[in-house]
Design a protein around this nucleic acid. Structure first.
Length: 488
RNA sequence: GGCGGCGUACCCAAGGGGCUAAGGGAGAGGUCUGCAAAACCUCGAUGCAGCGGUUCGAAUCCGCUCGCCGCCUCCA
């Protein structure tokens, strides 16, 4: 298995630190606003990485944090006239509901900064003892900073030179810092701000330190994989490395993984440019599974241009997949095991025999989900071709069963393609806000079936037209009529 | 300015020295059908931003040019 390591800038063989369990940490969200599709991408990408590692037989302990205290949360609370913890709770709940719809499962541990104040304080104490941190008085309380000059390897992840950083450092630097690029470990509490008691008075943790404290607490001093969005490389992950390696004297992370951005008009989606789409808005318009497919249809490190058209295309393509699935299920449920005529199955057999390998080598190559999905659709096409031959008999049945099982095994790594045709369409009724239930539709189809049997074509056409106007398409087949939601 | 990345058909996108340049969407033709739609099948880049070079061989490596983006500041 190859993983692209941001630290070395190369794809490297994945060799875990220890045999038993892989430690994986991904930086989650700061809970101060609705999450947007960029946050979702990161969550989906690491969800798939975790799933594939498990598929490959590794035990994985996956930790994803929530930042539930920081300046933005405090500001938001002031804006909304509530407390900081109410803000954090609200957006964490919302994050969970969005992620749930996207099929992102929970991490094994989901620590929050405010739940680890003691651990953070312990870490800072050690950093002081080792001479990496210094205090700055701020009225009655004290702030603590990490002294970047004490850590010679600073910049090794982001490939930055300390000198250049200084030149580019912000104008409004805290003049109490020894070096403009030093960063806060602990912030003295200002009036009206939330605070925790510490050896340095009342204050709260800086941003970066929570990840150091929580990663080490839950995964140990050295972890296999640490990831997040590419915008976290600097300064967040650079600072994490400095703190953590200063603390333990050991390498913090073996493989650093970073996902690319979502762009709009080629520009990074960001709050300051006000060019973001929240997951709320997107899930209101598009099917959640289609959004997940859209996100996984590009390699995780490539930028993805946000596009309504592509989101819609993803729905169409999923719809086609589920049609194939319906054909397979139907074939298997109707199959009698008796072979009526000779079948030509060599091509499908060939595809089925190679499929698992193709899927795995795609995923083994730095989690190439786009290629893997391509293979899945290729197999679907072969299945359709085979089914077009109207096969029968045990050989055909076995083959289709095998294909279906493989599709479901690989689909579950991506957490895609797992529904039945009916579930997919029932889901689409909701996405497309069609005011009909499955039962309503089935009742109308049954009515129409009677009309058809009596050759009352006008009546049958009327029913079909009525459903069509509501976005339901009827498909007449040899042995009955099936329905589906029109995605186009 | 420093560092990094991108440019593949109408749109999206994989590939990253030699196999017919995956896959999806759109489009066109066909099969099926009471009619129709859907579905399904087939077709779709002699060419991978441009120009040079290396090589028996380049979309893939090297150089230059053009266009675009990211990080260097809170950011997934």
């Amino acid at each position: 298995m190859l993983i692209f390591n941001t630290m070395t800038g190369k794809k490297e063989d994945f060799i875990p630190l220890q045999r038993e369990t892989i430690g994986m940490y991904a930086c989650g969200v700061t809970a101060y606003n609705h999450c947007h599709i960029g946050h979702a991408r990161s969550a989906v990408v690491f969800d798939v990485i975790k799933r594939y590692l498990q598929y490959r037989g590794f035990n994985v302990k996956y930790v994803r944090n929530f930042t539930d205290i920081d300046d933005k949360i405090i500001n938001k609370a002031e804006e909304e006239g509530t407390s900081w913890d109410a803000v954090a709770r609200k957006y964490i709940d919302e994050f969970y509901s969005d992620m749930d719809r996207l099929g992102v499962s929970k991490a094994d541990v989901e620590p929050r900064a405010t739940g680890h104040i003691e651990d953070i304080i312990e870490v800072i104490k050690i950093l002081i003892d080792k001479g990496y941190a210094y205090e700055v008085a701020d009225n009655d309380n004290k702030s603590l900073y990490f002294s970047v000059d004490r850590f010679p390897e600073y910049g090794k992840l982001s490939k930055k030179q300390k000198g250049e950083l200084m030149a580019g450092a912000r104008a409004c630097v805290d003049e109490k810092k020894k070096n403009p690029i030093d960063f806060a470990l602990w912030k003295a509490s200002k009036k009206g701000e939330p605070w925790w008691e510490s050896p340095w008075g009342r204050g709260r943790p800086g941003w970066h330190i929570e990840c150091t404290a929580m990663a080490i607490k839950h995964l140990g001093e050295s972890i296999d994989i640490h990831g997040g969005g590419a915008d976290l490389i600097f300064p967040h992950h650079e600072n994490e490395i400095a703190q953590s390696e200063a603390l333990t004297g050991r390498p913090f992370v073996k493989y650093w993984m970073h996902n690319g951005f979502i762009t709009i008009n080629k520009e990074k989606m960001s709050k300051s440019l006000e060019n973001f789409f929240t997951m709320r808005e997107i899930l209101d318009k598009y099917n959640a599974e289609a959004v997940r497919l859209f996100l996984l249809s590009s390699h995780y490190r490539s930028p993805i241009e946000f596009s309504h058209e592509q989101l819609h295309d993803a729905e169409s393509s999923l719809d086609r997949y589920y049609s194939t699935k319906a054909r397979m299920d139907e074939f298997l449920s109707m199959s009698t095991g008796v072979q009526k005529k000779a079948i030509y199955s060599a091509e499908l057999e060939d595809f089925v025999s190679k499929f698992k390998n193709k899927f795995e080598s795609a995923m083994d190559d730095d989690f190439n989900t786009a290629l893997a999905i391509g293979h899945i659709f290729e197999l679907a096409r072969e299945i359709n071709k085979f089914l077009d031959l109207r096969p029968s008999g045990e050989t055909a049945e076995t083959l289709i069963k095998m294909a279906r099982d493989m599709l479901s095994a690989t689909g579950s790594v991506l957490n895609l393609f797992g529904k039945t045709h009916l579930e997919w369409n029932a889901d689409l009724l909701k996405t497309k806000k069609i005011p009909l239930s499955v039962d309503d539709i089935v009742a109308r189809v049954d009515e129409r079936q009677i009309a058809r049997q009596n050759k009352e074509w006008a009546e049958a056409d009327l029913i079909r037209k009525g459903l069509e106007d509501k976005g339901i398409i009827l498909e007449d087949k040899r042995d009955g009529t099936s329905w589906k939601v029109n995605v186009s």
